[in-house]
Design a protein around this nucleic acid. Structure first.
Lengths: 263, 263
DNA sequence: ATCTTGGTTTCATTTAGTGGAACCAGTTTC
DNA sequence: GAAACTGGTTCCACTAAATGAAACCAAGAT
C-alpha cells in the first residue's frame, strides 16, 4: 500500500479533529463505511463514532441509509459557494481569463496556494465546456506544476520553507524535479526568470508556462498558467505567451487590489 | 427509546458552534471584521475569538491580514469538490441534463434538499456559459421554487413536517404561497399531479415546471426543473415538457441506483 | 445455536471550552 | 498631551463537553 503521510495539520481541539475526519472521508473519493474510517483513524471506536455522528447531523457528512456509507455532505457545497465567491481570485479574474483564453486559444488555469498544495479555482478551455466543481476545487502538487512553482518561488522566506517541506517529491514523470535541492534551484531560476515552466513534470506530454499573481506589497495571491501539450506546442512556443501572460497576471493583481464585493 | 429530541437548534457540541460561525461568515457574503461577527453572535468575545482562531488556522476561514477581515476559507472549496462529486446528483445526472437541455432549449436546474432549503447542484443554460461555483452551491427557498415544492411534496411524513417548519414563508411576489396552509394544499396537489409548478412565486415573470427525482424505494433524492419566463413561455407551454421532464427525472433516478464511483 | 463482525450506548474520568475581566495597542476627543 | 474610546487579544478559575474501555445489540456467517 502507499502509506504516504500528509503534512500534519496541528489538530487543535475538537473542531480540528472533526475536520480531520472530514478530510479523511473526502480523501477516500468514494462513500465509506464506518469501519473503513475506523481502520484509517487514530481514534477509538466510540470517539470516532460520535464525531462522525456530529458531522452527519450537521450536514457536513451525508449518510446513505441504504448503503450505510458516509460521504462529504452538501452543506459543504453551500459553504464553498461562499468561499469561492469571497476568498478566491476567480470572480475578480474571470474577465481577464476570458480575454486571455480567447487570445491564446489554449487551456488556462487559475490557482491558489493552500498549505503547499495547488488549488485550482478556475479553468478555461477553448474547446470543451466548463465542468463546474469537477474542475474548480481540484488540487494538485506544488512542486511539479507550473502554477505551484510560480507561487512557491515568490513566497516570503518563511512561508516558502514551510511550503517546500510540505512537498511529497514523488516522480510522476522522468522530468519531475523530485529532490528538494533540484526544486530549490528551480525556484531561484523562476524568481529571476519571472515565469515558471512545467516541462512535462507532472504529466507526460503536458507543458505549461505560468506566472504568479502578486499584490502590490509583493504577497503571492495566486498564479495563472497557459497549458498545452507537446503535440500542439513546444516550450519555445509557450515562451511567446510570456508577455501576455505576465500582463494578464498583472491586470488581475490590480483588479484584486480594489475589489469590492457586491452588496 | 423515543425519537423525540425537540430542543435541537443546531447546537450539538463545540463542533456545532464552530460550524455555526462558519455559516454566519458565509451569510455575510463579503469579508467581515471580527467586531461585526461579534455583534451578530450570541457568544461572548473571548469564546467567539477562540472559535474563529481555530477555524482560521484550520483553513476553514481565511483571514485577510491587510484588511483585518475573515471570509470562508479555501479548504472549503477543496472539500466541496469531493462533496459535489460524491454526494451530489450532478455527476450522475450530467449526461441526462445535457440531453434535456438541448432538447428543450430552456434553462435546466438540478437541485437537492438541504435542511428544507433548495441547494442547486447543477445548471444548464442554452445560451449563457456555465458559471462554476457561482451557480452550483447556490441556495434558494423551499416553499416558493418548483424544485423545492417538488421535493418537499414527496418526502415522508416526518421529514416533510420538518421541512415545512423550516420555511420562512416570505411573500417574494404577489403569487407566493406565503402561508403554511396554502403551502400544504399545494403539496397535496403536487403529489397527485406528479410535477410542481412555480407560477411566478419566487421572482416576477419567472415560471418553471419541476419533477422530483425519486429512488426505487421512493426516497426523494433531488429534483429537476425547466425554467422559463412569461415573455417566452406560458404555463401551458411548460406543460408540454411534462413528459420529457418526468422521463429524464426517471432516467437519472435509475442511473443513480447503480452508480459506482470511479476508483 | 453459537460465533463473528460492524455498529451503538453507557458512564466514570479527563480534557477542553467558556467567558468575565483585565489588558493592549491604536485612534479620537478634550 | 493626557484621557477616554474602540477593536482585538490574553488570563484563569469554573464548567460543560469530549473521551474511551467496556458492555451491548443485531445480523450474518459458521
Amino acid at each position: 500500500m502507499t502509506a504516504q503521510k500528509m503534512p500534519q495539520r496541528s489538530a487543535d481541539g475538537t473542531v480540528g479533529k472533526a475536520l480531520e475526519i472530514l478530510d479523511q472521508v473526502a480523501e477516500f473519493g468514494r462513500p465509506v463505511r464506518f469501519g473503513e474510517l475506523l481502520a484509517a483513524s487514530e481514534h477509538p471506536k466510540a470517539t470516532l463514532y460520535r464525531l462522525v455522528q456530529t458531522l452527519t447531523n450537521q450536514g457536513m457528512l451525508s449518510f446513505d441509509v441504504e448503503k450505510q456509507t458516509y460521504a462529504p455532505g452538501l452543506r459543504l457545497v453551500r459553504l464553498a459557494h461562499a468561499a469561492w465567491r469571497q476568498s478566491s481570485l476567480a470572480p475578480v479574474a474571470r474577465p481577464f481569463i476570458d480575454k486571455l483564453s480567447s487570445a491564446v486559444g489554449e487551456t488556462i488555469h487559475l490557482a491558489q496556494l493552500d498549505r503547499g498544495q495547488v488549488l485550482y479555482v478556475d479553468k478555461r478551455n477553448a474547446t470543451q465546456p466548463i465542468e463546474m466543481f469537477s474542475q474548480a476545487g481540484k488540487i494538485g502538487p506544488g512542486y511539479c506544476t507550473g502554477v505551484g512553482k510560480a507561487m512557491i518561488a515568490h513566497l516570503g522566506d518563511e512561508a516558502r520553507e514551510d511550503a517546500i517541506h510540505r512537498q511529497a517529491f514523488f516522480a510522476h514523470t522522468p522530468h519531475t524535479l523530485a529532490t528538494e535541492d533540484a526544486f530549490r534551484a528551480e525556484l531561484d531560476e523562476i524568481r529571476t526568470e519571472g515565469v515558471a515552466y512545467d516541462r512535462e513534470e507532472h504529466e507526460p506530454g503536458i507543458i505549461c508556462i505560468s506566472a504568479p499573481i502578486l499584490s502590490e506589497t509583493g504577497r503571492v495571491i495566486g498564479a495563472l498558467s497557459i497549458t498545452s501539450s507537446m503535440q500542439r506546442q513546444s516550450l519555445e512556443g509557450l515562451t511567446a505567451f510570456r508577455s501576455i501572460l505576465l500582463q494578464t497576471a498583472n491586470d488581475i493583481a490590480k483588479a484584486a487590489e480594489n475589489w469590492q464585493f457586491p452588496s
